[in-house]
C-alpha cells in the first residue's frame, strides 16, 4: 500500500465525518477579541514575566560574583 493510497482512503473516509463548528455567539466573541489586536503585536504584558525573571537571575548572579570577589579578597 502506497502513501498515495493511504491519503486517498483517509480522504474518502473523512468526507463522512460530521461538520463541526463553534457556535455563532462564541465565534463572534472570539473574532471581536482578536480583531482588536490585528497588527498591534503581542501585549506588553507578555514581556513582564521574562523581564522579571531576567532581573531576578541577573541580580542573583551579581550577588554571587560579589560574594566570590569578597571571599577571594
Amino acid at each position: 500500500m502506497t502513501m498515495e493510497d493511504d491519503v486517498a482512503k483517509l480522504a474518502e473516509l473523512s468526507r463522512e465525518l460530521p461538520t463541526i463548528d463553534v457556535d455563532s455567539q462564541s465565534a463572534e466573541r472570539i473574532a471581536m477579541r482578536a480583531r482588536q489586536d490585528v497588527g498591534r503585536g503581542p501585549s506588553p504584558r507578555r514581556l513582564v514575566e521574562p523581564v522579571l525573571a531576567t532581573l531576578l537571575v541577573g541580580s542573583y548572579l551579581v550577588w554571587a560574583v560579589l560574594k566570590i570577589v569578597e571571599a577571594l579578597g
Partner: peptide, 19 residues
C-alpha cells in the same frame, strides 16, 4: 493591519481549525 481581512480569514478558517 486590515481588520476586515482578518474577518475574512477567520470566517474561512475557523471551522477547520475548530474541527
Amino acid at each position: 493591519g486590515d481588520a476586515q481581512a482578518f474577518d475574512v480569514v477567520f470566517a474561512a478558517y475557523r471551522r477547520r481549525v475548530y474541527g
